[in-house]
């Protein structure tokens, strides 16, 4: 279903979202851009943004979160955050990344913490403002087909609204006084604006058969060259919208009876990631970890790449390692 919302009605529209939970949206934080922040004033909302450093996965798989409280006599008690949230202004790449996380955290063995927050969160997408680091057209993630409740596609004076769920339909219904039907001119504009947006994504990575090329290139010189300049700091993983490894730590109280089981994001670039019981580390060197990361990102999970082409790992690498450039060197295109 396609509808239309005038930009001048966005404030009113946003205010009606409060009934579904606390609203978070892109708010200007640094010279480089915005971060998803609780919206206390509509004026802070910056729907025209390129990318946040920390992807919206932080709302579902939290950077640090208590999982269980422990008591030696009473056992475990789950700690569930069931607060209601509305995410306003999520880009297609990040929505596609959440769809990937869903497969890991919802299928087969659902993660109660993730599942609860996914169910308690409304996602409203918005069309993006690509820069030179975006390559989502190469990874097939420049458009979101599912994983959102509403999606706002910007045209000149309004948004074409795509409805993606029953909750989205409910929001539209509640706002029917400001929700219109798109005209033929609007549809023409929609096509023009989408074509214009896609034309800005000029970085291209040939992913055809890249899995085999990587398998055959484990001893390529490019890995050592980049491992030599890599800090192994984990920033690439921690800003990645599809990275989903975590570590779990038990914190005991001094009484040795009570404690907390805490989960935090992990990174396969860190030494401890591949450390297993008995002290064996199956990726002891930085070059092995670097190769593994590229290999993981370019491998497929149910026919989708584990990379959505958002460009964060390149933008936020303190050593300026360029993800696409490294893969191009491996391909030797």
């Amino acid at each position: 279903m396609y509808k239309k919302l005038f930009k001048e009605d966005l404030e009113q529209f946003t205010s009606t979202l409060k009934q579904f939970g606390s609203i978070y949206g892109p708010v200007k934080k640094t010279s480089r851009g915005c971060e998803f922040t609780e919206l206390t004033d509509f004026k802070d909302l910056q729907l025209n943004y390129t990318r946040t450093m920390i992807p919206p996965k932080k709302f579902f798989l939290k950077p640090k979160e208590p999982l269980y409280s422990l008591n030696k006599d009473a056992g475990f008690k789950e700690i569930i955050d069931d607060s209601k949230t509305v995410l306003l202004g999520v880009h297609s790449c990040d929505i596609n990344a959440l769809n990937l996380l869903d497969r890991v955290y919802l299928n087969q063995f659902p993660d109660l913490h993730y599942k609860t927050r996914r169910e308690n969160t409304i996602i409203i997408g918005v069309s993006c403002e690509p820069d030179d680091y975006c390559f989502c057209t190469s990874t097939g993630s420049s458009h979101a087909l599912k994983g959102f409740d509403l999606f706002l596609h910007e045209i000149s004076d309004s948004y074409i609204v795509r409805v993606g769920s029953m909750k989205g339909f409910q929001i539209i219904t509640q706002n029917k006084h400001i929700i219109k039907n798109p005209s033929l001119t609007d549809i023409k504009e929609f096509k023009e604006y989408e074509a214009e947006r896609l034309s800005k994504i000029t970085l291209n990575l040939n992913v055809n058969g890249i899995q085999d090329i990587l398998d055959l290139s484990f001893d390529h010189a490019v890995w050592q060259e980049n491992a030599d300049i890599c800090f192994g700091c984990g920033s690439c993983n921690l800003v990645c919208p599809t990275c989903r490894c975590y570590d779990v730590i038990d914190y005991l109280k001094l009484d040795l009876k009570n404690g907390l089981k805490v989960r935090r994001w992990d990174s396969c670039m860190l030494k401890q990631h591949a450390l297993v019981a008995g002290g064996l580390n199956f990726r002891p060197t930085r070059v092995e970890r670097l190769y593994n990361r590229f290999n993981c990102k370019m491998s497929c999970s149910e026919d989708s790449l584990n990379c959505v082409g958002c460009g964060r790992c390149t933008v936020y690498c303190p050593a300026d390692i360029n993800f696409v450039e490294v893969l191009k060197q491996v391909r030797e295109d």
Binding site: E35, M53, I54, K58, P63, K64, F231, G232, C233, G234, S235, L238, V239, R264, W265, S267, L270, K271, Q272, P318
Partner: peptide, 12 residues
């Protein structure tokens, strides 16, 4: 045994 960058990212 990981660097400060990790804590910067976890804190945003």
């Amino acid at each position: 045994d990981y660097p400060v960058c990790v804590e910067c990212k976890l804190n945003g």
